[in-house]
Structures are given as C-alpha cells and as structure tokens.
Design a protein around this nucleic acid. Structure first.
Lengths: 146, 146
DNA sequence: ACTTAGAGTTTACATCTGTAAACGATAACT
DNA sequence: AGTTATCGTTTACAGATGTAAACTCTAAGT
C-alpha cells in the first residue's frame, strides 16, 4: 500500500506553490506560475524550479496532458500543516508550549466553529491533564525550568 | 533604546544551544558543550560553531570572565517561540489554521493551568470571532477554498 | 512539412545550515 | 619562565535553499 509518505521537508518557497495546488486541487504549470507570480516577485523560471523540486520530493504528482503536465498534491494539506507545526513545537521547551499556544491563538483569526471545537477539545483534555509540565531543555538527570 | 531585536533566524541546531542558555539563564561554553553533547551527537567543535553564530546573530551576549566568556540570552525565549510559531502559521492557509491548532493541541501535553488559560482566551475570543475565515492561498481577486 | 512557442529539464550560483578540524592566544600550572 | 590545556576564532566543506538563465523537446500553427 503506497502510503502518502514524504521524508523530505517542504521549504518555505515550496509551500507557496503547494498552497496553490492544494487550493485548486490540480493545476498545470501555467496556472501555478501565473498565480504564484502574482503573490511573489519571482520569475517564471524560479517557480518552475520549485515545481520540479516538489515533484522530485514526491509532494506533487504529474499526469501528462498533451504537451504539459497536470500537477496534483500527493500529500494532504492538513498533514503538511500538522507536521510542520509539530516539528516547530518539538523544538521548543515542553514547559513553555502552553504559553506559545496562548500567544499564537491570541494573534490568529479563528472562526467561531474552530474556537468552539478548540474549547471542546481543551475541556476534554483538561480532565486528564497533569498539574504541571516539566522543562525538558536539559539532558536526562538535570532539573531545569525556564 | 536598544530594543531586543533580532532580524536573523535561529536555526534548528542553534535552538538546541539557546534552550540550554535560556534554561540556565547564563552559562560558559564548557557548560553548554557539556549539556548539549549529552543531547546530541555533536562534537565540541560543532557546538562552538553554533555558539559563535548565535553571538554574531545577536542572540547571545558575552561577558568576559577571566579567560572565558559567560553567555546570556539577548532575546527572550517566549519571544523566540512566539515568532517561530507565528512564522510557521503565516505560511499556512488562514482557513486551515484552526484545524492545525486542534491537531497540535491534541498532540501536545499541556498543564491544567495552561489549558484553563487557553479556554479563557478562547471564550473571550469567541465573542468577537467571525463566522468563517476565508482561504488566502490565491492572489487578490481569486476565490479559493481548501 | 517547417517553424515556433511554450513545457519541462539542466545547469548555475550565492547564501545558509549542519558538521567539524585546525589554529591562535592566553591563563594556569610546574 | 616555559609549557600546556583551553577557550574562542578561522577555515572547510557538503548539502539545502532561493533565485534564475539556458537549453531541449514537441505539440501546434502556417
């Protein structure tokens, strides 16, 4: 079973291309180049490079269509977002992640439905939450707190 | 007024060094090298390079202490975390950020206090939240949804 | 059939990152 | 005073990333 795996990282510039394809669900290079170059001051050649790298990385699939290709996402947008966020969080002190969320949520526009869903999840989580989370910035055996 | 500004990015490897200094609040290179090399299979020389780059970037300050330096953070940990998270989120579709939070929160250990604080913030936020957030993956004038 | 424009591929190159050895200065020990 | 163990600095180098020109096909128009 060909699981939707991707080992390689999608870089910042590549994200811009992926977002177009994710949103359109499929697109030819002309469309991608057209839309991306309205958002970024990149030459068509640059965007072609990014598309090529994404195909090589296994993030985009190609389907031949006459002289050109139709590109489709091979990894789901939500998965990519979850992974990117998790990697970022893993890098931060476990003790401080809660405050990071507070700040992030304060500064992010969220819909009523999303907020309600978050509250529900948090209320459930609260029932089994530990009183405190220890700082994990120091090696095993050392006690720290930031 | 010397604001705690940092234009340059702290890389993944550099984060590991910063976390030690943030947690200890101040440390000499011997301590940093000792602790970091217990967490990562890096040579002392590697960690020295990272320290040097962080000093050059303005993320660490140095105070001479005899033959060596004491390193202290020039940027607050919370600020670094907030910035890193915000940059990550800015890259993702505005419409999908809520779901990304749901996933992230589901998979992150949080203390009771943090959860309660998050719930409080979300309840406040709910009172002024829009019903929906539009996808912002396409250029101005195009309507998309992912 | 011949030319051509546009799609994808190759090549290019500077900078950033991860990883580390080599080196130079100097405090500390003998 | 001479030697040594460090500490910080310089140099190194491969691979990733951002950015883009050059090139090669081949479908499409004449």
């Amino acid at each position: 079973m060909p699981t939707t795996e991707i080992t390689e990282t999608i870089t910042d510039a590549e994200w811009c291309v992926m977002r177009i394809v994710w949103t359109l669900d499929q697109a030819d290079s002309h469309t991608i180049i057209d839309l991306v170059s309205q958002q970024h001051d990149w030459k068509a050649a640059t965007i072609k490079t990014l598309i090529g790298r994404l195909v090589k990385k296994g993030a985009l699939a190609t389907t031949k269509n006459g002289r050109q290709f139709i590109y489709t996402p091979l990894i789901p947008e939500q998965t990519a977002m979850d992974t990117a966020l998790a990697n970022q969080l893993d890098q931060m002190c476990a003790m401080c992640r809660g405050q990071a969320f507070v700040h992030a949520i304060d500064h992010t526009e969220l819909s009523q439905a999303d907020i309600q869903e978050l509250i529900t999840h948090l209320q459930t989580k609260l029932t089994t939450a530990p009183a405190t989370i220890a700082c994990d910035c120091l090696p095993e055996g050392y006690e720290g707190s930031c």
